[in-house]
Deep mutational scan, measured.
Amino acid sequence: KELVLALYDYQEKSPREVTMKKGDILTLLNSTNKDWWKVEVADRQGFVPAAYVKKL
Rank of each mutant, 00 (worst) to 15 (best):
A50F: 02
V41Y: 13
E12A: 15
V53C: 14
E12N: 07
T27D: 07
E40I: 10
L3A: 07
Q11M: 13
L28K: 01
T19D: 04
D43A: 10
V4F: 06
K22I: 06
D43C: 11
N30R: 07
F47T: 03
T32F: 10
Q11H: 13
R44G: 07
Q45L: 08
L5R: 09
L26G: 09
Y52T: 07
P49G: 02
V41I: 15
L7R: 05
S31I: 06
L7N: 03
T19K: 04
D43I: 07
G46F: 08
A50M: 06
P49F: 03
V18H: 03
R44P: 00
K1N: 10
M20W: 00
Y8S: 08
L56D: 04
R44A: 06
L56T: 07
P49D: 02
N30Y: 07
I25Y: 06
Y52H: 06
W36C: 07
Q45R: 11
V39D: 00
W37T: 03
K13G: 08
S31R: 08
G23L: 02
K55H: 09
S31C: 11
Q45P: 06
L56R: 03
G46Q: 01
D9S: 09
L28D: 00
S14A: 09
Y52M: 12
V53T: 05
K21D: 04
V18I: 14
Y10H: 04
E2A: 12
W37V: 07
S31T: 10
A51W: 09
N33D: 15
G23C: 08
L5Q: 11
L7Q: 04
D9T: 06
T32N: 12
N33T: 07
A50I: 04
T19Y: 04
L7Y: 04
L5I: 15
K22S: 08
K54H: 11
V48M: 02
S14D: 13
P15K: 11
K34R: 13
Y8N: 09
T32A: 14
A51M: 12
V41C: 11
D24P: 00
F47V: 07
L7M: 10
Y8I: 09
K22A: 14
G23F: 05
V41Q: 15
K22W: 03
T27K: 12
A6C: 12
Y10E: 01
K1A: 13
L29M: 08
P49S: 02
L26A: 08
K38D: 04
E17T: 09
L26T: 01
G23N: 08
A42I: 12
L28C: 08
A50V: 06
D43L: 09
Y52F: 14
D43R: 08
Q45C: 11
S14C: 09
M20S: 01
L7D: 01
S31M: 09
V4Q: 00
E2W: 12
G46H: 02
S14P: 03
L3K: 12
D9I: 02
T27V: 15
D24K: 03
Q11T: 15
L28N: 00
L7W: 04
L28F: 04
P49H: 03
Q45A: 13
Y52E: 02
I25Q: 05
V48I: 09
L5K: 08
Y52C: 10
V41G: 14
W37F: 07
L28H: 01
R44D: 03
T32I: 09
Y10Q: 00
E17M: 05
L7E: 04
P49Y: 03
K54M: 15
G46P: 00
E2H: 11
A51G: 12
R16D: 14
Q11V: 14
V4C: 13
K55G: 05
K34D: 11
K55E: 07
A50Q: 06
S14I: 04
K54Y: 12
K54S: 12
Y8R: 15
Y52D: 03
K54L: 14
T27C: 11
V4N: 00
K13H: 09
D43W: 08
V41E: 04
T32Q: 14
L3H: 09
L3M: 12
V4W: 07
K1G: 11
T19H: 05
A42E: 13
V18W: 05
D35I: 14
D9N: 09
N30K: 07
K21Y: 11
E40V: 11
Q45D: 09
L26W: 04
P49I: 03
M20R: 00
T19I: 03
R44Q: 08
K1T: 13
G23P: 00
L7I: 10
E17Y: 06
V48R: 00
T19W: 05
R44S: 05
D35Y: 15
K38A: 09
D24S: 08
A51S: 14
N33I: 06
P15F: 09
K1D: 08
V48D: 01
W36F: 07
N30W: 08
L3Q: 11
A50R: 13
W36S: 02
D43S: 12
L28W: 01
V18N: 03
V39M: 02
K38E: 15
R44L: 06
R16H: 13
Q11I: 15
D35W: 15
Y52V: 06
V48N: 01
L29H: 06
D9Y: 04
N33V: 05
T27A: 13
K54I: 15
D43N: 14
L29A: 03
S31N: 09
N30T: 08
G23Y: 05
K1W: 12
K22P: 04
V41K: 15
K1I: 13
Y8A: 12
E12R: 13
E17F: 06
A6T: 04
V41M: 14
S14L: 09
L3P: 04
K38C: 13
L28P: 01
F47S: 03
D35K: 14
Q45H: 10
W37Q: 01
L7S: 02
A6F: 02
F47R: 03
E17P: 05
T32P: 04
A6P: 00
V39Y: 02
K55Q: 09
A42P: 12
R44E: 04
K13E: 08
S31Y: 08
V4R: 01
Y52K: 07
A42H: 14
A42W: 11
Q11R: 13
T32L: 11
V41D: 12
Y8G: 06
A42D: 15
V53I: 08
T27R: 12
D24I: 04
P15A: 12
W36I: 03
S14Y: 07
L7T: 05
K13P: 05
K13V: 08
V39A: 01
E12M: 14
K55R: 14
L29E: 03
R44T: 07
D24A: 08
L29R: 04
K55A: 08
V39R: 00
K54Q: 15
A50W: 02
K21C: 11
K22T: 07
L56G: 03
V48S: 00
L29N: 03
K22N: 04
K22Q: 10
F47M: 09
S31W: 10
W36T: 02
W37M: 04
E12L: 08
R16T: 12
A6Y: 01
V53D: 02
V48T: 02
K13R: 14
K34V: 11
N30S: 13
D35M: 14
L7C: 08
W36V: 03
S14V: 05
K13L: 10
K22F: 06
L56I: 14
R16Y: 13
I25W: 05
S14N: 14
G23I: 01
V18C: 09
V4G: 10
K21T: 10
D43Y: 09
L29D: 02
E40A: 11
E40L: 10
K1Y: 14
L7G: 02
I25F: 06
T27N: 10
E17Q: 10
A50P: 04
Y8Q: 14
K1V: 15
S31G: 13
K55C: 09
I25H: 05
Q11P: 07
E2V: 13
A51I: 12
E12V: 07
K22E: 07
L56A: 05
V48F: 01
W37G: 00
D9G: 06
D24E: 12
V18F: 12
D24W: 12
L56H: 07
W36P: 00
T19C: 07
E12G: 15
D35L: 14
